[in-house]
Write a protein that binds this DNA or RNA. Structure first.
Lengths: 146, 146
DNA sequence: CGGGATTACTTGACATATCAACTATTGACT
DNA sequence: AGTCAATAGTTGATATGTCAAGTAATCCCG
């Protein structure tokens, strides 16, 4: 019924895209009740890791898991929700420093356990050794130039 | 400089999401000059594989690599470009049969070689055996329920 | 220290994604 | 036949993503 099995190199790519899609969707479902998206959560985590100074906008963008050209408006939304505060830098007035607020920290604290449980559940089909192998293989893939 | 390395189970998830993001973006860049998106390309390929009868809308959605709730409008765009034709089914008037047009087939033919080259290049950092291992590991991951 | 190149965002316009109704048909049962 | 449930799409509202262009501040170089 299904078409002929794809050649090995296509199978890899399909598997990666499918896995990521599933993970993203299940992640979004986890965060949706808390009124944030996966990307917003990632920003908050990055900012929690950068307390107390915070980070300026483009530095956050660089640390995102996924490329995020719309970082400004993403942080706009977090600021509107009161989870992030922004201040224009005094030394270099082009930069904007972003910091997580106490409300943002409280939200992350509420999410820490569920997220960790989610992550563990997501990989429970693989032994620790296989998890390392998988990470290593994907690392090799990404080392490719271009 | 970078924060502490993430635990093994998080590292896997990050690697998957990052890899997929890179692949998607490079794929989009490949298709952009031809005025289609990755998802549109996938629909066309699915429909080429279903010639000459075509498929009805939701069947296409089921075969997509990524979940695609906006399948109707996605196909709207393909129809507007003349790459797909739709006809309401006579037997079951709820269904809409979608078929690739000759223009759609010509577009795919132009893309076949570049896409194959792209796919091969994307995995050239891995030996064939490693490619199979990677596919298998991701398969195990996806077998997980929930 | 003046002027062009860079940097760090910001904004506007537009494409696409997502979810929740809603419509039209068909199927299943009585 | 008559009705309720299920199926197959469609549509509207809204959120988000993406690219290109614009602005303000700083840097670099003579």
């Amino acid at each position: 019924m299904s078409p002929t099995r794809p050649p090995r190199h296509k199978a890899v790519l399909i598997a990666i895209l499918q896995s990521a899609d599933r993970l993203r969707r299940r992640g979004e479902a986890l965060f949706a009740p808390h009124d944030i998206t996966l990307q917003q959560f990632n920003v908050l985590r990055i900012l929690r890791g950068a307390r107390p100074e915070g980070l300026c906008t483009l530095t956050i963008a660089q640390r995102m898991i996924e490329q995020t050209p719309g970082i400004t408006r993403l942080i706009d939304r977090l600021e509107q929700k009161g989870l992030v505060r922004r201040v224009r830098s005094a030394e270099d007035r082009r930069q904007v420093w972003c910091r997580i607020t106490p409300a943002g920290e409280r939200l992350l604290e509420r999410l820490d356990d569920p997220v960790d449980a989610f992550d563990r559940a997501a990989v429970r089909g693989l032994s620790p050794a296989d998890q390392d192998r998988l990470t290593a293989l994907l690392g090799q893939l990404q080392e490719e130039p271009g």
